[in-house]
């Protein structure tokens, strides 16, 4: 079956039984779920399709089923009013009356290779052998790959700014928290604990807190994932997945958050530990 976006009048038939008695069983088509919902179409309905807005040379088809169209971020917000037909039916519907059957044009030919890894070489071979034909790998052929790459870069940039802001706040907080424990640190130094020992303790504390914060953040993200996806899928009536917390994303978040938290704690404590113990203990 071949996807085909129609421009045309789509009319419900009068009665299936009447047409069934008058003509052979009409060819079957699939319609998108969204189109079926909008136009009140159901499996088994007879519809008339034409290739022009005036409905000339319309033909009758029976809806064999509905399908969820492949989500396309480029068409977000558009209702996918699409119908899939068998290629011969589509050619018969769109063929110019002067064009003999079998000489029609098709816009593209999809080829399944025995070895998909050979796709690039196959495309180069076809391009070299058949002037006027342009072959390319199916992956990224729709031109969407680069859009996703750009959106990914945009989100990384937003994340970088967020991390920078969070780091600054984290440093401010840790400086305040460390300052709050100045006297405790002074007493520990006075009773004989070396600065390095206290620094290790601070580092471990920072690691624990950062790890707990990162895990809490991941749990929050996992909980928000479903909500965000459900909201946007409802908003745009699409099956597109907007947010996915993958193991790679989770690992990356933890890999950034934990060392950052630990480093911020140590950096904030460093200046404090360089002071004299008596001064820290305010004696």
């Amino acid at each position: 079956m071949k996807p085909f976006l129609f421009v045309l009048a789509l009319l419900l038939s009068l009665t299936a039984s009447f047409l069934g008695a008058q003509a052979p069983e009409p060819p079957s088509i699939l319609v998108t779920r969204q189109l079926a919902e909008r136009e009140g179409l159901a499996v088994g309905d007879l519809v008339r399709l034409a290739a022009d807005a005036r409905g000339e040379r319309a033909r009758t088809f029976r809806i064999a089923g509905t399908y969820e169209p492949t989500p396309n971020p480029l068409r977000l917000g558009l209702v996918p009013r699409e119908v899939r037909l068998h290629l011969p039916d589509l050619l018969a519907l769109t063929r110019d009356p002067d064009t003999p059957a079998g000489t029609e044009r098709v816009s593209s030919v999809n080829v399944a290779l025995v070895d998909p890894a050979e796709a690039r070489r196959f495309a180069q071979d076809v391009n070299a052998r058949t002037p006027g034909v342009f072959a390319r790998r199916a992956a990224g052929a729709a031109g969407m790959g680069s859009i996703f790459v750009v959106l990914e870069r945009f989100h990384y940039a937003i994340a970088a700014v967020t991390i920078a802001a969070a780091t600054v706040f984290l440093l401010a907080l840790t400086i305040m928290l460390v300052d709050e424990r100045r006297e405790t640190v002074g007493v520990l130094r006075l009773i004989g604990l070396p600065a390095r020992r206290i620094l290790v303790q601070v580092l471990l504390e920072g690691l624990f807190i950062a790890a707990a914060g990162a895990l809490f953040g991941l749990a929050l993200a996992a909980a928000a994932e479903g909500l965000i996806n459900r909201f946007f899928q409802w908003r745009y009536d699409t099956a597109l997945v907007f947010v996915r917390v993958t193991p790679r994303v989770a690992a990356l978040s933890v890999a950034i958050a934990v060392p950052l938290g630990a480093v911020a704690t140590v950096a904030a404590s460093w200046a404090l530990l360089r002071r004299r113990a008596l001064r820290l203990a305010r004696r």
Binding site: I158, V161, T162, A164, A165, V168, F169, L171, A172, I175, M176
Partner: peptide
Amino acid sequence: PARSILGILGVAAVGAL
């Protein structure tokens, strides 16, 4: 000054976003 400057810088970054 340290905590104040860091607080202001944090607000500047968040405010820019």
